[in-house]
Amino acid sequence: MRVGLVVVSHSARLAEGVVELAAQMAPDVTVLAAGGLPEGGIGTDYDSVVAAVQRADAGAGVVLLYDLGSAQMTAELAVESLADPGAAVVVDAPLVEGAVAATVAAQGGADRAAVAEAAASAGAPPGTETAAQDAGAAQSTTLTLRNDVGLHARPAALLVRSIAGLDADVRIRLGEDEADGHSVLALMSLAARKDDTIEISATGSQAGEAIRRIEALAERDFDE
């Protein structure tokens, strides 16, 4: 049972496009578009937002993202009108980055609060993320990327998913830059390409397992 996502936009096509992009990262997450007016114009439609939230909720709750001003109001009204308003939450996040970060978090089995947090922090400037927690001795390894696109969106999403749920805090380093191994967007911002060598460090009781899984993924060229 995973958290569902609803993308609320003034434009039907914008909502559908964001859903298309986000869903590609996370095949098992219900991501639904609620964009435009029923007659086809620009605007947000309360009834379709409510319907989308109800359909997206598989029991683990729903996170709503929105594009502009009144879309937020419509989304908040829709949540307030639910039989259990606590089942859904409207998150202030950059629409595209937030939707991608949230669906990947949901795919990994994160709860509603964690999915919302993933979306909200997707727009944070680099360096504001929390520092690695000091949880026992770090294990580390280096590996060279052999796949064609490096740590691009899909491989980054696969990496994050491969270690989701493990008790391990994983950091990936490329040269001077370091990224949170649990954030697709942070990994993408490293811009690690084919033939780049990255350093993986992990702490936590399952640090070794996390590193082993990432190595296996790289070995398979991220299933390209």
Binding site: L37, G41, D45, Y46, G69, S70, M73, T74, E76, L77
Partner: peptide, 15 residues
Amino acid sequence: LISKVGGAAGPLYGT
């Protein structure tokens, strides 16, 4: 009003 007004006025007057 909430259901029929697509812009900000719907949620605002509706609320």
